[in-house]
């Protein structure tokens, strides 16, 4: 192409529509399904059940839920124009590094700021539900992040574009065609900028969103730390009881 001329608006419009459609098709729970009024919050009886679980059982339950969510993110990526045109190595690298990041972005859709609960296991659950994991610090950081991102009140389209932006991070290690990913991420960022302007969002929201990326990465890093700590405690557990996709993504 002739240097870095920014893509025509029609290209950006088309990419924006493609990503928003992909998001709605693969968002796992539709917005209306997630209405807190549709779901009960975890009752004391349930709470006792969760808190009485062994650390291994609770880790296994959460690993299964994370893996379910990640599969929807893989389908989201496949539907984004340009992703399947990347070389297979880069598709794998972006998903391995970014799928859990996108799950954290999507989680704010399933967060109820009224009572600091998140949709989990068909109920709205607070941080205390996850006590048996033995990761209270990480769990409270995750809820804090969900609270802060949901306070931006992103529309579905904005959430979809931000998810795509996070996924197509060109600074991932081991990318073979870094420039191609950079161009794709830049296009997505411009499309996101256009959408935020169209939605008359306040000036600083794009900067706020880009700043959230470092927090998302810190959460993913701490997830890996907790995983290696639990694996040191129960070496067999991850191998025998966690979903294969979870092991493939986070095992090494």
């Amino acid at each position: 192409s002739n240097g870095d001329s920014s893509p025509p608006d029609s290209d950006l419009e088309h990419l924006s529509e493609n990503i928003c459609k992909s998001h709605l098709e693969t968002c796992q729970y539709l917005r209306e399904e997630l209405q807190p009024s549709n779901w009960q919050t975890v009752l004391q009886t349930d709470l006792d059940t969760y808190q009485k679980k062994s650390q291994e059982d609770m880790w296994q339950l959460c690993a299964v839920k994370v893996t379910e969510a990640v599969q929807y993110v893989v389908e989201f990526a496949k539907r984004i124009d340009g992703f399947m045109e990347l070389c297979q190595n880069d598709q794998i690298v972006l998903l391995k590094a970014g799928s859990l990041e996108v799950v954290f972005v999507r989680m704010c859709r399933a967060y109820n700021s009224q009572n600091n609960t998140v949709f989990f296991d068909s109920k709205y659950a607070g941080p205390e539900v996850f006590k048996a994991l033995g990761c209270d610090d990480l769990i409270s950081s995750v809820f804090e992040f969900a609270k802060s991102l949901s306070s931006l009140q992103l529309t579905e389209d904005e959430n979809g574009l931000f998810s795509a932006y996070v996924l197509m991070s060109a600074d991932r290690s081991w990318l073979q065609e870094k420039t191609r990913v950079e161009k794709l991420q830049q296009k997505i960022k411009l499309a996101m900028q256009n959408l935020l302007q169209k939605n008359q969002r306040d000036e600083g929201i794009l900067t706020k969103l880009v700043c959230k990326v470092s927090i998302i990465r810190m959460l993913c890093h701490r997830h890996m730390e907790k995983l290696s700590a639990i694996r040191a405690l129960y070496p067999e557990m991850v191998q025998t009881r966690f979903p294969p996709l979870y092991k493939e993504l986070f095992g090494s």
Binding site: T26, Q71, V74, E75, M84, Q88, Q91, L95, K96, L245
Partner: peptide
Amino acid sequence: KEKHKILHRLLQNSSSPVDL
């Protein structure tokens, strides 16, 4: 390919939104 068999398979198979 060996290390990421499942991801490769998910990327290859064309699943419709219904499957999701």
